[in-house]
Design a protein around this nucleic acid. Structure first.
Length: 568
RNA sequence: GCGGCGUUAGCUCAGUGGAUUAGAGCAUUUGUCUUCGGAACAAAGGGUCGGGGGUUCGAAUCCCUCACGCCGCACCA
């Protein structure tokens, strides 16, 4: 347990003693007072008063008067219907800095997920199409969820699930044979070319009705694993997969296991057969469905009339496959919110089948362009490569101006790191349930609420540390300015932010915390001279503080998939 | 038609288990800096929290209703 949590426990113990057994005080009842001057934590008395049929203001006054100071709490004052607890700054400050020093890269880690195992499915791009900014949101969000669970003590499994089969693949392969043939294709261009072919094929089909039958034939041949088309499928599929591996690595997205739709298709069909025998599924209008009318979820289609599989066919099989391989307590599906009904149906069906694990659909909204939704069929998409290259280019130019003496290699490394921090932060700073309107001009601005601003803060602290020989060491009573206290408090808050995010998956709150903290440091830096060679004790204390800021920011960046830098 | 989500400053977004004059970033205007990195800091202007009604001492936040937008509702994924 970290200092602030300990302090809250002290407040709980005191309150319990004062109230007695008639009312249970818990951690999540505490609020933050609107103004720090009013106290560090507040206990609202509304609920307690309601139970006793009394005035909350009166109760607050009584409670405050009957509670005495403890190790971390020095004053207890009633303000209206709230009992406000003021921390003992000296005790809390040194304990917080000690926490960070002791835990280091693990500061903020908790154990709320101890002995529980969660599997997160995310990163589900389709092969034969390009990876675009919408896929980035999915992959980066899923990875952050995985990270926050890990940090809270859960055992985790991250699962990518690749759409490597189905109608879109058939169309792409048909298009490849028709438009590409044996023409030369260099390695760097091949996935981009696949996307072009897909778009071209879509346009062609719209104008040539007869092409549809040809594509259907390709799909049949493919499902029958006919030699020639299977060879082309395997080859082109591999291009996409290699590209995904490259992109994931750049984004710090690292699934533990990769599943493919092609490997669960057959198992899914068998499962449907069994469901028919068991009476869970039935035939309807030639297709196979699960009747979920009783739960107001309509009919859930699990096999097409022609006996070919659907997304649902494969998802049913995949749920069991994950279970067999990892037996998690919970499966989380990071999939866009258009799929909300689908997942309700899928989960209801699995429940009917006796599936035990807790299932959660973590929905997120789309990434749109200023002119509207992206469509890979129409080809108006911003791909990862477009965004990445534009960003790296812009950052490299800016970095070169700042560091004319740097080598090409150094410039590339820094531009790469800053670009990814900007991309990941952009995707994570906003509530998942809201549309991100992607604007390239805005994406290329690195001021304010952005990843580079956070990285810049860390680089600055590193730079200050590197310029003095004085070692960081906190001495009680030396950090008393308003900004210094604010910084220590935000560091003290961090473990609670992490714990809460582990329960709510509110990754944006971590991004917000990181920005607020970086902002506080910038204000402090402009107000106070940190290194004063003639004041060794004071400098030591300030260095201890800013190093704790750096460490905590670093830890937050790790969760957000942002690598940090000593110079940029 | 039914259901889900959304509507807060010019733009992009926080805040929604009811606490003071509703916050941030960008943009605009004006400043700061011979000193630890200006991807910085300070300040100003800018808001009937979509409309209406209700509950409450008190509502952006809870309830009802209307409007607008996006999405979903059987053989796509």
């Amino acid at each position: 347990m970290y200092t602030k949590q300990k302090a809250i426990q002290e407040a709980i113990t005191s309150l319990k003693k004062a109230i007695g057994k008639k009312f249970l005080v818990t951690v999540d009842m505490f609020d933050a007072p609107p103004d720090r001057k009013m106290g560090d934590i507040a206990f609202p008395c509304f609920e307690l008063a309601k139970g006793e049929g009394r005035n909350p203001v009166e109760i607050a006054t009584e409670l405050a008067a009957s509670i005495g100071p403890t190790t971390f709490i020095e004053k207890i004052i009633a303000v209206g219907p709230y009992v406000n607890f003021h921390f003992n700054d000296e005790a809390v400050f040194s304990a917080v800095l000690e926490d960070v020093k002791r835990a280091g890269t693990k500061y903020g880690f908790g154990e709320s997920g101890k002995d529980r195992k969660v599997l997160v499915e995310y990163a589900q791009p389709n092969t034969h199409k390009e990876f675009h900014v919408g896929h980035i949101r999915n992959a980066v969000l899923g990875q952050a969820v995985l990270n926050i669970l890990k940090v809270n003590g859960y055992e985790t499994v991250g699962a990518a699930y690749i759409g490597d089969i189905g109608a879109h693949v058939a169309k792409a392969l048909w298009g490849f044979q028709k438009f590409q043939g044996d023409a030369e294709l260099v390695k760097e261009d091949r996935t981009k070319r696949l996307q072009e072919i897909y778009t071209e094929a879509t346009t062609y089909v719209a104008e040539h009705e007869e092409a549809k039958a040809e594509i259907d034939a390709v799909q049949r041949d493919l499902e029958a694993r006919e030699d020639e088309i299977t060879k082309l499928w395997k080859e082109t599929r591999q291009w996409s997969i290699q590209e995904f591996e490259r992109i994931f690595e750049l984004l710090h997205v690292s699934p533990d296991v990769w599943y493919y739709e092609s490997e669960v298709e057959e198992g899914g069909k068998e499962l449907v057969k069994k469901m028919l025998t068991d009476g869970i599924a039935k035939k309807s209008e030639g297709a196979t469905i699960v009747d979920l009318e009783a739960e107001n979820l309509g009919a859930f289609l699990i096999l097409k009339t022609d006996g070919s599989s659907l997304y649902a066919t494969k998802d049913l099989a995949l749920a069991y496959k994950k279970d067999k391989q990892f037996s998690p307590d919970r499966q989380i599906f990071v999939v866009d919110n258009r799929q909300s009904l689908y997942f309700k149906q899928l989960f209801a069906t699995l429940k009917l089948m006796g599936f035990q694990e807790k299932l959660v659909h973590l929905a997120y909204d789309m990434v749109n362009l200023p002119e509207g939704a992206m469509s890979s069929r129409a080809g108006n998409i911003v791909t990862f490569n477009d965004l990445h290259q534009t960003m790296v280019g812009a950052i490299k130019r800016e970095t070169a101006e700042r560091h004319p003496d740097w080598s090409e290699k150094q410039l590339n490394k820094v531009a790469e790191t800053v670009a990814i921090s900007a991309i990941n932060f952009m995707m994570l700073r906003q509530d998942p349930n809201t549309i991100i309107t992607f604007d390239m001009a805005e994406a290329l601005s690195f001021d304010g609420f952005t990843g580079p601003y956070i990285l810049y803060t860390i680089a600055r602290i590193e730079s200050i540390k590197a310029k003095t020989k004085i070692k960081p060491k906190y001495t009680k009573g030396l950090l008393t300015s308003e900004k210094e206290e604010a910084l220590i408090r935000t560091i003290a808050d961090y473990p609670l932010v992490i714990q809460k995010a582990g329960q709510t998956f509110n990754i944006a709150s971590i991004a917000q915390w990181a920005f607020d903290t970086a902002k506080m440091f910038a204000e402090y830096y402009h107000e106070v001279r940190i290194v004063e060679e003639e004041d060794k004790v004071g400098t030591s204390a300030r260095l201890a503080l800013i190093d704790a800021v750096r460490q905590t920011l670093d830890n937050a960046c790790e969760i957000l998939g942002m690598e940090t830098l000593k110079e940029m």
